[in-house]
Write a protein that binds this DNA or RNA. Sequence first.
DNA 1: AGGCAGGTGGCCA
DNA 2: TGGCCACCTGCC
Length: 303
Amino acid sequence: MGVAQTCFCFFRVNWGAWQVFSPPLYLGNDVLGELLDGGQSFRWNQVDGEFAVWQGVFGRNLVQLRLAGDGEVEFRLPSGRGSDSEVQKYFGQDQDWEKLIDALPWRSDLHLHECMERFPGLRILRQPFGETLFSFLCSSAKQIVQIKQCCLEVAQRFGEDLGSGSYAWPGWSVLADVGERALRDCKLGYRARYVSGVARVLSDDDDFETRVLESSFKHAKNLLMELPGVGAKVADCVLLFGAGKLEAFPVDTWVTKVMSRVYGLAGWKAESIALFGTAHFGSAAGLAQQFLFADERRLSKKG
DNA sequence: AGGCAGGTGGCCA
DNA sequence: TGGCCACCTGCC
C-alpha cells in the first residue's frame, strides 16, 4: 500500500476508449497477474475498486488493462496521451511467441512442459532499457513488494506526474542530480550508491543503450557488468526484460531451487547454472526461465 | 521480535 | 577460482 493509494491529491485521468491488441492477446486472469506483477516489471497494480483492472507505467505512458469476458486483453490510454504502438511493443506484439514457445525443448523436458501448461500465454515484456536497469539495481536482496515501493517512491518524488496516482521514471540525469542521500530516503538502502553511480555514468553517455542493443549477448552482458551494482543476475534481467535478448537466463534464488531440485544442478554456481540454462533451453532460454520461475513461486506460495 | 530477502563487490586462502 | 561477509532496511 503506497502513498499513491492513500492520497487523493493526484489529478484524475480522462481515459480513452478500450482497445484490443493486434494480433489479439488472450490470457487467463492469473497469467495476466503473473505477467504484470510476477517480477518482470514493478510498475503495475490492480486499481482500487475496479475489479480486474490493472494500471501501469512505462516511459511516459500510463496504461490500463483489463480482460474481456472471453479472456481477450484490452488496454486504454489517457485520451490524447501515450502511444498505442509503444503499448504494442511493450507487450511484445512484434514477436512470434507461438514460434518461440514451440522452439523451447518442451518435447524432451517434462518439467518445462508442465510449467508452460500452467501459465499459458506467459511471455516476456519488452520494457524501456533505462528503467529496467534502474529497477533491477534496486532488486538485490529485496522482495517484489519492496522493489515496487522503491520504484514508486523514486518516481513519485522525482518523476513526471502522469495522473491517477502514477508517475514516470525520472531518468538518469535527474537521478544523478538528486544524489545518493535522496535515494536512500526512498528506501533503497545500500543500493542507492549503485543507482547514483550508474546515473552519473549514464547521464553522460547517450548511446550506452544503443551499444548494448547492437552488441552480441555476451558482449552486451560485459558492458552492463562494468556498471557499479550490476553483476551477472542484474545484467541478465536487464538484457531479457529491457533489451529483447531472450537468450539471457537470469539465475536468482528461485531458479537456483528448480535447477538443483529438478535438473540435478545442486551445488552449482549461479554463473554455471546460467550457462547450462542457455545451452539446454536455447535461444529463448529467458522465456523458459520465466515459466520455471513462475511455477516455482506458485509452489512456494502454496506452501 | 528478529531473521531474512530475486545480489554485488571486495578480501582472503 | 572458491568462499565468506558487509552492505541497508522494511516486511513476514
